[in-house]
Design a protein around this nucleic acid. Structure first.
Length: 593
RNA sequence: GCGCCCGUAGCUCAGCUGGAUAGAGCGACGGCCUCCGAAGCCGUAGGUCAGAGGUUCGACUCCUCUCGGGCGCGCCA
């Protein structure tokens, strides 16, 4: 599909952020390649510098296969020719041919200077892209507020929050949007349930619990009484009529109470939105959206419903935009939302952080826009994620279902995590100030971190033990590194020296830490390009591991002044970078824990 | 039935859009607190990358098929 100027292709690996050291090496290599008589542009495209699997080989490696073919030389011979043409200088320490590879090493002092200066510079956040014209709408969390906030809602919330932060860090204009499910049949069912079995006192006392009870009761009763669903459909029709009637007042009441109840989990998770525009927000915009579809000449009637066929795009199921009773659907509202966002925000990307089971829905949404020849179609991007599974009675992993009652309220999980952290604090750090606040913070972070650790497409196996583990690759592990670094800075009780003032050569023993730090910018960029926050999560784990390892046998406080100063800058940089990394995930780094 | 996703160590997962001996954490076993936080560090054991073909100089990575698990498929969201 051709992309318009308004909706340019996504950033590619080529434009990916690299350090000045890499740029320097790349220039040298291009000169060497030119010296060997290869066509410059073609060769430049083949010039890929990757960190070698085994970092003992070097800091970056060039696999010379493609270039050697272009040069009509055997790869080992070509690699040797390249290596011979890269002279050591104040940045490059060595270039060594190893079979078909060329391995490069940067000077440790140059590496330390580059990465530490960049981290300490206040001009721009480390890892920020030079320019960024992207306007990114992120549609996330978007819970159906007629149901309680449970573990299943957390993924979209936490993933979307992290993606908002990551894009902002890269300098994009971001609109975080909570597209609440506050319209349609689920809401009508809740209204019906409330009017039949509800209790106003209970509703105000504990809205989430009460609505959960109503939800379960409705589900059970509707199985025996299908007319309940008919009543709900009628109530939805009455609501959508736009008249000031009982349904509308009921809708308002339930919506207000739900929204209030949802503030609890949101504030605990530290998640905020730029716009809370639920489906109901588009109530008065759907006629215009439908008219636009009609005008494009793609709307067809089928069994009394209005649909758009997408067979030419390989989608067999039609997209339903209006039911035979005249009411609207999920698709209608998403379409109206897409038009609204286009006009209001002029986005380059619209990310829908919605479970993978809705893949067809978003393919259809995009398909309709493509068929209508709407430019916004190019911006539509479904960011799917895996299900949350729980262990069933027979030990099999199965989908959480709120109706079967195995749903776990998010608050319960957070409370459990906080309780456990509180216990750890009592044991390990009994003198800590305000342990309850720290426990709340570390416990909640552990849950968030756990959710952002694995690739988003994977199903999450809900496992209390893993969720509440605080050792190894966990949130507390990374936060602990931050606390430990802060502690060292406190103990030294000296201002962190100016970066320029230290002898960078003294940090040669921290090469693994420095090398890991250099990966940060690329990690953030990749996380944004692929909508994959776990890349950042893994970065924080890696850096925490390297700094912990370094600290085990490199003392700061007792080192001689020149070494101490250099290490202070390193420690401060590691703390800053870990803090930034965690911040991108929506987690704060504690000074003490 | 059709479409899509997943399958890597006992468990939970990485593997940077094909590259050099497949890496972590947990669990197991063994070490390290008379210098900065042991929520830590160091080491040992553990893998025919589900299976079979194919493409390639080179495949965990791409293609085809098979097996296993999951999700989706017209008036729900």
């Amino acid at each position: 599909m051709a992309t318009s100027a308004r909706y340019p292709a996504r950033p590619t690996q080529e434009s990916q952020t690299v350090t000045d050291l890499h740029r320097h090496l790349r220039e040298k290599l291009l000169a060497a390649i030119a010296d060997l008589g290869l066509p410059a542009t073609e060769a430049a495209g083949m010039l890929r510098l990757d960190p070698p699997r085994n970092r003992d080989h070097g800091d970056v490696a060039l696999g010379a296969f493609q270039l050697a073919k272009l040069a009509k030389l055997p790869p080992p011979k070509f690699a040797a020719e390249i290596a011979a043409r890269i002279a050591a200088d104040d940045i490059i320490e060595s270039a060594v041919a190893a079979g078909p590879f060329v391995n490069f090493k940067f000077r440790r002092g140059a590496m330390a200077r580059e990465v530490l200066t960049a981290i300490h510079s206040d001009a721009a956040p480390y890892g920020k892209a030079a320019t960024n014209d992207q306007v990114v709408c992120i549609d996330f969390s978007s819970p159906n507020i007629a149901k309680p906030f449970h573990i299943g809602h957390m993924r979209s919330t936490v993933l979307g929050n992290a993606l908002c932060r990551i894009h902002r860090h890269l300098g994009a204009t971001v609109h975080g949007i909570n597209h609440l499910g506050d319209w349609g049949m689920p809401f009508a069912k809740m209204m019906t349930a409330y009017m039949r079995f509800g209790d106003e006192v209970e509703l105000h006392k504990s809205p989430m619990r009460h609505m959960f009870e109503l939800y379960k009761r409705y589900d059970a009763e509707a199985k025996a009484n299908p007319e309940l669903n008919e009543e709900a459909a009628q109530r939805f029709k009455a609501l959508e009529s736009g008249e000031d009637n009982e349904e509308r007042r009921m809708w308002q009441l339930l919506r207000d109470e739900s929204l209030k109840a949802f503030q609890g989990p949101y504030s605990r998770l530290g998640v905020t939105f730029d716009h809370i525009t639920g489906e109901s927000f588009f109530e008065d915009k759907m006629d215009a959206a439908m008219a636009r579809v009609e005008k494009a000449g793609v709307l067809e009637e089928s069994d009394g419903a209005d649909v758009v066929w997408l067979k030419d795009q390989g989608i067999k199921q039609p997209c339903l935009l209006r039911k035979s009773d005249g009411t609207t659907l999920y698709h209608t509202r998403d379409l109206a939302a897409a038009f609204y966002r286009e006009e209001t925000f002029h986005p380059t990307r619209i990310l829908y952080i919605v479970g993978g089971e809705q893949k067809l829905h978003f393919a259809q949404l995009k398909g309709v826009l493509i068929k209508m020849k709407e430019a916004i179609a190019d911006a539509i991007e479904h960011v799917p994620f895996g299900l949350v599974l729980s262990k069933g009675p027979e030990g099999k992993w199965e989908k959480f279902a709120s109706r079967s009652g195995n749903a776990v309220f998010l608050d319960e999980i957070l409370d459990e995590a906080v309780r456990k952290v509180r216990g750890v604090i009592a044991e390990k750090n009994p003198d800590l100030d305000d342990p309850d606040a720290v426990a709340e913070h570390v416990g909640v972070s552990a849950i968030i971190f756990n959710d952002l650790k694995n690739g988003r497409i994977k199903d999450v196996k809900f496992d209390w033990d893993a969720m509440l583990a605080f050792e190894g690759e966990t949130g507390p592990y990374v936060q602990y590194a931050c606390a430990r670094l802060s502690s060292i800075l406190r103990k030294v009780d000296l201002p962190v020296p100016a970066v320029d003032s230290i002898d960078f050569e003294l940090l040669a023993d921290a090469e693994r830490v420095l090398l890991t730090m250099m990966d940060f910018a690329a990690a953030v960029q990749r996380a944004a390009d692929q909508s994959e926050p776990s890349v950042v999560t893994h970065f924080t784990i890696a850096l925490a591991g390297e700094i912990h390892s370094y600290l085990a046998d490199h003392y700061v406080v007792s080192a001689e002044p020149a070494v101490r100063n250099a290490r202070l800058v390193l420690v401060d940089a590691a703390r800053r970078l870990l803090t930034t990394g965690l911040d991108l995930l929506g987690i704060k780094a504690p000074e003490r824990m």
